[in-house]
C-alpha cells in the first residue's frame, strides 16, 4: 500500500513540476538589455558600413545581438508614445545612418541629451532598412 502511495505521489510531483516549468517558460521575461553585457561593441560608422557593404552577412552577424554603439547625436526626437529616438550622425553621406529607439525606462534622461553630443548606447539590432535599427536601447554613457 505504501509503495502505491509513493508512486502516486511521485507521478503527481512530476506533473506539477512539468506544469510549473511550462508556465515559467510561457511567461519568461524579455532579455534585460541594461543588465546584459554587449555581444558586439562598435561605432555608428562601422555598424552602418557593415550593413551597406553586405547586408546578408551583417544580418548574420548583428541580428538579435546586443550591440553597443558609440556615435554623435544628429537628431533627437520623441516617438508617438513619447519614447526617445536618437539618430546618430553619418558625416560621410546623407543616405543612411544608425537609429536608436530607446526603451521607455530611459525617457527621464531626455533632459541630459542634446544634438551634437557624443554618446554610447546599447540595444538589440533588428536589421537595416535605410538605416540600421537598434531597439530597446539604453544609454551607457552620456
Amino acid at each position: 500500500m505504501s509503495r502505491k502511495k509513493t508512486v502516486i505521489v511521485s507521478v503527481l510531483a512530476i506533473i506539477m513540476l512539468g506544469i510549473f516549468l511550462a508556465v515559467k517558460e510561457y511567461n519568461k521575461p524579455h532579455i534585460n538589455v541594461a543588465d546584459t553585457k554587449p555581444d558586439i561593441i562598435t561605432n555608428s560608422q562601422g555598424l552602418l558600413e557593415d550593413f551597406q557593404v553586405n547586408e546578408n552577412s551583417a544580418n548574420k552577424k548583428y541580428l538579435d545581438q546586443i550591440v553597443q554603439v558609440s556615435g554623435r547625436i544628429s537628431k533627437l526626437e520623441a516617438s508617438e508614445n513619447n519614447d526617445i529616438i536618437i539618430t546618430l550622425l553619418n558625416d560621410k553621406s546623407p543616405l543612411g545612418t544608425v537609429i536608436c529607439h530607446l526603451s521607455p525606462d530611459e525617457n527621464k534622461k531626455l533632459i541630459n541629451l542634446k544634438e551634437g553630443q557624443d554618446i554610447i548606447a546599447k540595444g538589440i539590432c533588428t536589421g537595416y532598412l535605410m538605416d540600421v535599427i537598434l531597439v530597446r536601447c539604453v544609454l551607457v554613457k552620456i
Partner: peptide, 27 residues
C-alpha cells in the same frame, strides 16, 4: 523588419521569428 515586432511575451516573439515567419531567412 520582422525582428522589430515587439510582443508582450518573449516566448511568442521567439516563436514568431524562429518558427513562423523565419526572420533569419526573410528579415
Amino acid at each position: 523588419l520582422m525582428k522589430s515586432f515587439m510582443f508582450e511575451k518573449s516566448l511568442m516573439q521567439e516563436h514568431f521569428n524562429e518558427n513562423y515567419v523565419e526572420s533569419d531567412k526573410f528579415p
